[in-house]
Design a binder for these strands. Structure first.
Lengths: 128, 128
DNA sequence: ATTTGTGCAAAATTTTTGCATTCTC
DNA sequence: GAGAATGCAAAAATTTTGCACAAAT
């Protein structure tokens, strides 16, 4: 059991991340924190963000340094394999409840959504 | 009405993208296509990918050059505003049908998922 | 012919790393 | 004091751009 270490920077990053309603990029976070910690380094922000994500205290949305492209226009879901970092089409039927929920949302004018399941793909699971 | 132009490269990119089950990065696509088009340029791949996406013939998964981070661990959904490119927490109750669907999937061992709704946020909608 | 696309190389962005120093436990 | 975290600057990796030339309508 490794206790999570604390540092002024890490705590500030985590606190700031929790207190914001939006989901900033590392750079946006850095820009904000820099106002009170002028010596903060962007590398520290990156390091901590990834560490937090690994420790299960944070999430990386839109992870991966590279964008992934898709040509299938028929609505469908995706499957992200945590092991091989590939994205597959999920063989999962559309869920109408999601559209219904989007319709009922007053917070924004939603016209689509993307659903990405995460786990270990068949191929990687069989590699043991 | 602008007809979509064709070029050897664009057609090859589109065809390859459609025929693959995975969702390659620009670079992966480039590597494959290069085998039959040795002069193909990576820049061309990027240009066409974005063009296809704009024309509604393709999708950019995990778009945006920058990763977005999130500290809220309680499961929740996200809202991506196409106008301001920000990501908000969606005020939408959890949909149990999604978990059920994940459970039934034999294609992979799914343990989580991320749902991102897309549209125009309240704030941007009011700016007109 | 005119417009649009391509390749190449250079620039801009975003993210990661190496290393000496500083901070936590 | 040992191990971990930081800052800085340099390196990688990813994406975009400028421009001369080629291709498409």
């Amino acid at each position: 059991m490794t206790a999570v270490r604390h540092s002024r920077q890490r705590d500030a990053i985590y606190t700031e991340l929790c207190s914001r309603g939006d989901h900033p990029t590392a750079d946006e976070l850095y820009a904000t924190l820099r106002q009170t910690m002028p010596n903060l380094s962007l590398a520290t922000v990156y390091r901590n963000l990834h560490q937090l994500a690994e420790a299960g205290q944070g999430n990386i949305l839109y992870t991966s340094a590279a964008d992934h492209f898709d040509a299938v226009m028929k609505p469908h879901y995706h499957l992200y394999c945590r092991q091989c970092h590939r994205i597959y089409d999920a063989d999962i039927p559309l869920i109408s409840e999601i559209d219904r929920a989007a319709q009922n949302c007053t917070q924004a004018d939603i016209d689509s959504y993307s659903l990405v399941f995460e786990g270990i793909c068949e191929h990687c699971a069989n590699q043991h």
